Amino acid sequence: MTSENYVRLRQICLAAANIGEAEGALTDILGLEVCHRSQLDQFGLENIMYAINGSFLEVVAPTRDNTAVDRFLARNQGRGGYMAIFDSANVARHKALAEASGVAPIFERYDDRADLLQLNPKATGATMLEFDHHKGGDDMMAKYHWAGEGWQEYVNTDVTGEITGIEIAGPETAARAKLWAQICDRPVSQENGVAQITLDYGRLRFVHNPGEKQDLFTAIDLTAKDPTAMRARAKKAGCTETERGFICYGVEFRPVRAD
Rank of each mutant, 00 (worst) to 15 (best):
M1T: 12
E4Y: 02
I12R: 02
C13S: 03
C13F: 01
A15G: 02
A16V: 03
N18K: 13
G20I: 04
E21F: 01
E21M: 02
A22E: 05
A22D: 10
G24E: 15
A25H: 09
D28V: 13
L32A: 04
E33R: 14
E33W: 01
V34N: 10
Q39Y: 11
Q39N: 12
F43P: 00
E46C: 07
N47G: 10
M49S: 11
A51V: 06
I52Q: 05
I52Y: 01
N53M: 09
G54M: 04
F56M: 13
F56V: 07
A61G: 10
T63L: 09
V69L: 10
D70P: 00
L73C: 12
A74Y: 09
G78T: 09
R79F: 03
R79C: 01
M83Q: 08
A89G: 13
H94R: 07
H94G: 05
A96M: 08
L97A: 15
A98R: 02
V103N: 01
I106G: 02
E108F: 08
A114C: 05
D115R: 02
L117M: 11
L119S: 02
L119F: 12
N120Y: 09
K122D: 13
A123Y: 02
T124C: 13
M128I: 07
L129P: 03
L129W: 09
H134G: 00
K135C: 12
M140S: 12
M140W: 09
M141H: 14
K143N: 15
K143Y: 08
Y144F: 15
W146G: 02
E149G: 11
E149M: 06
E149I: 04
G150F: 10
W151A: 05
W151K: 03
E153C: 04
Y154R: 12
V155S: 09
V155I: 15
T157M: 15
T157N: 14
I163A: 00
I166M: 14
A169T: 10
G170E: 12
P171A: 12
E172C: 10
T173P: 08
T173Q: 12
R176L: 14
W180S: 07
Q182I: 00
R186K: 15
A195C: 07
T198W: 00
T198E: 13
T198N: 06
D200N: 13
D200M: 07
Y201L: 13
G202D: 10
G202F: 09
R203H: 07
R205S: 14
R205V: 06
F206K: 05
F206Q: 04
F206M: 08
V207C: 09
P210I: 08
E212Y: 14
K213Y: 05
Q214W: 12
F217Q: 02
T218W: 08
L222C: 15
L222Q: 13
L222S: 05
T223K: 13
D226W: 07
A232N: 11
A232G: 06
R233W: 07
K235P: 01
A237V: 06
T240Y: 00
T242H: 09
R244N: 14
G245E: 01
F246K: 12
I247Q: 10
Y249L: 06
Y249Q: 00
G250D: 05
V251Q: 01
E252I: 07
E252T: 02
P255S: 10
V256N: 11
V256M: 12
R257D: 00
D259H: 04
